[in-house]
Amino acid sequence: MQVTQLNDQQLIACYLEGNERAFEELLNRHQQKIYTSIYLFVKDQSLAEDIFQEVFIKIIDTLRRGKYNHEGKFLQWAMRISYNMCVDYFRRTKRRPKVSPTDTFDIFDVLQTPDFNSEQTIIRSQTHDKVRHLVDMLPPEQREVVILRHYADMSFKEIAKLTRVSINTALGRMRYALINIRKMVEEKEVILQ
């Protein structure tokens, strides 16, 4: 059986029947998006790796206990687990993530992009740094929605469910985030190319 052609639910069923390769495919299929969303919240590569491992340990445990609910999508469920683990981490440590220019991980290294010449690459890198800095300056609720929408590629419906707010609240937070980013760009005379 070719596991790469199976959907997530079929992979879960195969895994529960003892096919370890099925879980490996499920992990490979979603690890980049889950890890990236964790990293964007915690801003620390080793911490993100630890939380990522904890997320998949919890997923395996939940699957093996038969507690997984097939109503939702696997990725949305896994993203909710990772989000909750990040929130738990911040509650325990009482600190907020910050972007520092010395970070060794860069989300834009993971994302596939077309080839650019050297000048375009430098300009693009500088623009991304500026945008990341502006996003990091947003209030936590607005920053959260921006990260989930633009970096984790989640719909507003998924964001609302994950953060346990109404869809209108999620949309409002995004709207205010964009307004605040525009205001910061104008006030600080930031040039985004």
Rank of each mutant, 00 (worst) to 15 (best):
N7M: 10
L11S: 04
L11P: 05
A13M: 09
C14G: 06
C14S: 10
N19S: 06
R21Y: 14
E24V: 06
R29W: 08
Q31L: 08
I34H: 00
T36M: 13
D44A: 07
D44W: 03
S46E: 11
I51W: 02
I51S: 03
Q53W: 03
E54S: 04
L63R: 03
R65P: 09
N69I: 14
H70T: 11
E71I: 15
G72H: 08
G72P: 06
N84C: 03
D88M: 06
Y89V: 09
R91K: 14
R91F: 12
K98Q: 13
D103S: 04
F108R: 11
V110Y: 12
Q112V: 05
P114H: 09
S118T: 13
E119S: 08
T121W: 02
I122F: 10
I122K: 15
I123G: 02
H128L: 15
K130A: 14
K130G: 07
V131L: 05
R132D: 05
R132G: 06
L134E: 01
V135T: 01
L138S: 02
E141S: 07
Q142A: 04
Q142W: 01
I147L: 05
Y151I: 08
Y151P: 03
A152E: 00
M154I: 05
K161N: 14
R164V: 10
R175N: 05
V185C: 02
E187C: 02
K188M: 05
E189A: 12
